[in-house]
Structure formats: structure tokens, C-alpha cells
């Protein structure tokens, strides 16, 4: 497998990236780790005349945590470093576990969270957990910075809400509520190392048997990862019971829009959404 020819740019200052992206427009692709972009080019699933690499921008390699501002993951930080980061392991366990099962050791040494999100694959493993944790995307351009909720970043398979000349510079994840409990389930029927057939991230906060807060995000079952709003509505404020979790899971099943692929059929994915959502809720709420 060989790559098609392209021009390569590796600016050392971020302004140069903005300029290049503005002047080259759709002829250029940004590259972080390249683990989505390069296979896509080789397989003819995408094409570009220019690659603008983020590899020389040391400012994007930032990874920091503070109680007030939360976690800041620079767009150039590789997955392996995020997963090994002390605060991530202690406070963002759902993210750490999602990364631990994402791809392979070799890929995690190159790939970035930003690339995973900007690739906008419905099955991106970091998306449901980050969405459940309320992640914010920092977008920069020559015109300045703007922040959007991660939920608004992906607009369809392979398509994100960036304007010409904009790039993602960081992902900011608020400090999780201490009382909240969360879990991430990635399911493949075929193998322990595989792209998900369905992935589910759930985060709940309960007091005395009542659900105060709940976030449920589903991956691989719609054009983008989606929020199971109806399931959340059922749960929020209600008293926990197994039958409540079951009806929430059934609601999640009804609100997803999966398609058939190599890994599973549409009906099976729906079924999995129900089973896995219930399992995840049982784990976070401790109801068995």
C-alpha cells in the first residue's frame, strides 16, 4: 500500500497553520498522528494535495490539569501520554479506559484525541466518554478562539463544524463531580482488539436512590455519537429500580439509528444498545 503524492508542510508557528489552511482550503488536510488520515489516503477513501502537519507545534503538546479549569489536552498530545497522565488515571478513569482499549500500542503512540474526534467517525472511542464528561473543544484561527461543546463538533461521518482556516487546538474536560460515577463499554462481537460495534458511555450521580444527573452517549449507532436524551429524561429525578434501568435502556434502543456493516447488523446493534446501556447503568448506579 503506497500513499498518493502530496505536498507536505510542517509549520513551526500556529499562525502559519492558519494561513496555510486558509490559502489551501479543501486541497489540504491537517495531520496529527496520521493514523486515520494515512490509511484513508492509501485506501483511496480520501484524497488531498497538501498535508499540513501539526507535529512541530510544541504548544499543542500541552497536557495539564487543575481543579478549577479541569483537564486540558492539547491537540498534539498522543493517546499514550493522555492515558498515562496521573490526573487522567485518577479523575478521568472513563477516558483512560476508553484509550486503553483504543487501537493498538503502536497507534496510541502516534494518535491524538483531537484526531480521533476530528476524524468524526461514529465509532470514535474517545467521543462518548468525553461527551458524557461535558468536554469543550477549543477552536482557533487567525481570527481568534472560540469554544464549542464537543457534542456540536461532529456533524456527520467524517464531517466537523469547523470553518475554513480553523483548527482544533485543545480539548477541555471539566473536573468531574466527585459524586458522579461513570463507565464506558466498548463492544465487539468478534475480537478483543477491534473497532466497536457499539460503544456506550454512562455517567450518573445519585442521592438516596434517586438519579440527580445522568449522561448517556452512544457510539456507532448513528451518523455521529449521540446522546440518549429520552433515556436520560426517564431516569432523571426518578427512583432507581431495575425496571427503571430497563425502560431507560429500551428508550436508548429506540432513539438510536444504526446501520448494518461488517461488524453487526442494524437490528443487532439496536439490541446491543439496550443490553449495554442497561449494563452500564447497573454498574454506575450499583443496582443489580
Amino acid at each position: 500500500m503506497r500513499l498518493p503524492r502530496f505536498e507536505y508542510h510542517a509549520p513551526e508557528r500556529i499562525e502559519q497553520v492558519f494561513d496555510l489552511m486558509e490559502s489551501l482550503g479543501s486541497a489540504a488536510e491537517l495531520m496529527a498522528g496520521g493514523t486515520d488520515l494515512l490509511p484513508g489516503l492509501k485506501l483511496g477513501k480520501r484524497s488531498c494535495d497538501h498535508i499540513v502537519s501539526l507535529s512541530r507545534l510544541s504548544e499543542l503538546k500541552e497536557l495539564s490539569f487543575n481543579e478549577a479549569k479541569g483537564l486540558r489536552i492539547g491537540a498534539g498530545t498522543v493517546l499514550a501520554d493522555v492515558a498515562a497522565h496521573g490526573p487522567v488515571r485518577d479523575r478521568y478513569r472513563m477516558l483512560a479506559s476508553a484509550i486503553a482499549d483504543l487501537a493498538t500500542v503502536q497507534v496510541r503512540h502516534r494518535a491524538t484525541v483531537a484526531g480521533n474526534l476530528c476524524n468524526a467517525s461514529p465509532c470514535a472511542d474517545t467521543a462518548p466518554p468525553l461527551m458524557a464528561m461535558g468536554a469543550i473543544i477549543e477552536i482557533s484561527s487567525s481570527g481568534g478562539r472560540r469554544d464549542i461543546p464537543l457534542e456540536e463538533l461532529m456533524v456527520g461521518p467524517g464531517s466537523i463544524a469547523l470553518e475554513k482556516g480553523e483548527i482544533v487546538t485543545a480539548i477541555i474536560v471539566p473536573t468531574p463531580r466527585l459524586e458522579s460515577r461513570s463507565t464506558y463499554i466498548k463492544f465487539s462481537p468478534r475480537s478483543k482488539v477491534d473497532i466497536a460495534a457499539v460503544n456506550v458511555a454512562v455517567s450518573t450521580t445519585t442521592t438516596r436512590g434517586r438519579v440527580d444527573e445522568v449522561e448517556i452517549f452512544l457510539g456507532t449507532v448513528a451518523p455521529t455519537p449521540i446522546r440518549a436524551r429520552r433515556a436520560e429524561v426517564l431516569l432523571k429525578g426518578s427512583h432507581l429500580s431495575e425496571s427503571l434501568l430497563a425502560s431507560a435502556a429500551a428508550a436508548a434502543r429506540d432513539e438510536c439509528l444504526p446501520i448494518t456493516d461488517f461488524r453487526a447488523t442494524e437490528e443487532y446493534k439496536r439490541h446491543l444498545v439496550e443490553v449495554l446501556t442497561k449494563r452500564a447503568l447497573m454498574t454506575t448506579t450499583g443496582i443489580a
Binding site: P39, L43, R190, S191, K192, V193, D194, I195, F262
Partner: peptide, 28 residues
């Protein structure tokens, strides 16, 4: 028995990478 199959559609093989044609890994 469980994970490998060449998915065919009108004579075309649809899964043409090891990401899609799944042979067992060590953990399996």
C-alpha cells in the same frame, strides 16, 4: 468458526483490510 469471513456482495469482497477481516489476536 467465529470471526473471519470474506463479506461478498455481487462478487465484490467488501472487507479488504485486517481491520475488517478479523483474524484472532493474542488476547482472543
Amino acid at each position: 468458526a467465529l470471526s473471519e469471513t470474506l463479506v461478498m456482495q455481487e462478487g465484490r469482497t467488501l472487507n479488504t483490510t485486517f481491520l475488517d477481516y478479523k483474524i484472532p489476536v493474542a488476547a482472543d
